[in-house]
């Protein structure tokens, strides 16, 4: 007994003097932050880029230096490009993506939920959606132009089609993720069908839906350049394509940087939205 007590007091004494801590051995990241590594990688890549241009390893026409791209950005920011200011280019693209995303959310979520709940809705809508959604948007771009002309309608329709499928499919998956037990529990608490939908199905499906929206926005940026191939005079996609025709590589780089910044902003906002709307995700 006394020996034991002595041992424990001895251990307490050593704990106070900062012991090396351990973590259980598992797999994957186990929640450790990767931010520092990511920032270091970004710095290293830019340094490599700078080095490659500084040592003239690649012709300037193919790879402008970081300084040139930055200078070009400032020029475009001040003077605009191809008859429109930078704000107008970005605004035109954001308007197209934003409107298409809003339409895709407003139609994709209700239809997806309906497909998850109703046999007829699923049976009827599955055929067209499963047919069109694996197609690359570029392949039906000509049809959009022939049917809808070269104005905004065809661009927004193309973006809408590309974004609709992931949202609709994720809403369906969300409904499927509602466990029978959870639904039964609500029913035995007296939930009427509409209460079951509002209080159980919708919140249960929300995490999946938000993931779908995030994927859709990603697909949307991916389709933007294709959409702006159609007789545009504005837009970041147009800026890139028209710069490419003049081999203005530095302008292409500026366009790419702007798209990546915008896409990052959207993704960040959606992650924030996820934190606010579904804080319980992965915790139940």
């Amino acid at each position: 007994m006394t020996v034991l007590e002595l041992n424990t007091t001895a251990e307490k004494g050593t704990v106070a003097s900062a012991k090396k801590t351990v973590r259980p051995i598992g797999f994957g990241l186990e929640g450790r932050s990767t931010t520092a590594i990511s920032i270091a990688t970004a710095i290293a890549l830019i340094a490599l880029w700078w080095l490659a241009t500084e040592l003239k390893l690649v012709p300037r026409l193919f790879l402008p230096s970081p300084a040139e791209v930055l200078r070009q950005f400032v020029t475009i920011f001040n003077d605009g490009y191809a008859g429109a200011s930078l704000g107008e280019h970005v605004g035109a693209s954001l308007f197209r993506i934003g409107l298409a995303a809003a339409l895709a959310v407003l139609t994709g979520i209700p239809l997806g939920l309906l497909m998850g709940l109703n046999r007829w809705a699923k049976g009827v809508l599955d055929t067209p959606i499963e047919f069109y959604w694996p197609l690359p948007p570029l392949s039906y771009l000509p049809l959009m132009i022939i049917w809808l002309g070269i104005g905004e309608t065809s661009k927004i329709s193309l973006l809408f089609l590309a974004m609709f499928a992931p949202i609709c499919l994720s809403a369906q998956a969300g409904v499927r993720s509602v466990s029978v037990e959870r639904a039964n529990a609500a029913k035995s608490l007296g939930a009427k069908p509409w209460q079951l939908f509002i209080h159980i199905v919708l919140p249960s499906a929300l995490p999946e839906i938000l993931t779908g929206v995030r994927i859709a926005i990603g697909v949307g940026w991916g389709t933007l350049v294709a959409a702006e191939l159609i007789a545009s005079t504005r837009g970041i996609g147009f800026l890139i394509m028209s710069a490419a025709q003049f081999l203005a590589t530095d302008v292409v780089f500026v366009g790419i940087a702007i798209i990546s910044l915008c896409a990052f902003g959207f993704s960040f906002t959606l992650r924030l939205l996820e934190k606010i709307l579904v804080p319980w995700k992965g915790k139940s």
């Binding site: 466990s179 959870r182 529990a185 035995s188 608490l189 579904v278």
Partner: peptide, 28 residues
């Protein structure tokens, strides 16, 4: 069908993760 006159306690946890404990209890 199921109804509030027969209360059910399941083996599996069927509480709503987005609601507080008191809101879960008050659901019915």
């Amino acid at each position: 069908g199921p109804g509030a006159d027969r209360g059910v306690v399941f083996q599996k946890d069927t509480l709503l993760p987005w609601s507080t404990v008191i809101d879960n209890v008050a659901l019915g």
